[in-house]
């Protein structure tokens, strides 16, 4: 990418952004996996002896369906809520990556890719905030 008109090199060169994106993805997955595993240990201790039944679809309760409700459930230290928070953090990781790309393209003054990235971010946020009503 060194020869294209992507904007200033140095702090926001494409190579630097690649390193940042890589670190962000790795950190997000590690944090999400740790939260899920900790919540999972508690979940298995509390509910391990219950009967597992996924033959019939009932849908999750409201406390496990939206980002706000999941965070509230996790703060109450409900084990299912903590696991779900880990899963939400995982879903949020690629979204954070797109946000980082958006910032990088803005700082590179790459207007075309700022627009492209903004569309992707809008679709992702729409899905997480308003999605689900079929």
């Amino acid at each position: 990418m060194a020869d294209d008109a992507a904007g200033p090199r140095g702090r926001w060169s494409d190579e630097r952004v690649e390193q940042l994106v890589g670190n962000l993805l790795r950190t997000g997955v590690i944090i999400a996996a740790i939260v899920t595993a900790l919540g999972g240990a508690a979940l298995l201790i509390q509910h391990g002896a219950a009967r597992a039944d996924y033959h019939l679809f009932r849908g999750e309760p409201a406390a496990l369906r939206s980002v706000g409700a999941v965070a509230a459930s996790a703060l109450r230290l409900e084990s299912r809520g903590v696991v779900q928070l880990g899963l939400v953090l995982l879903i949020a990781t690629p979204i954070a990556r797109v946000l980082l790309s958006l910032v990088a393209f803005v700082l590179q003054r790459d207007r075309l890719y700022v627009a492209v990235t903004a569309v992707v971010l809008a679709i992702l946020l729409f899905s997480l905030v308003f999605g689900g009503h079929a």
């Binding site: 509910h47 009932r58 369906r65 939400v88 979204i95 992702l124 899905s127 999605g131």
Partner: peptide, 20 residues
């Protein structure tokens, strides 16, 4: 990851994502 996150958001809100 980005592709899957787009539908995972909808499925989370629709109650398809079971933590257990």
């Amino acid at each position: 990851g980005v592709t899957a996150a787009a539908s995972a958001g909808v499925y989370l809100r629709r109650g398809y994502v079971d933590p257990t």
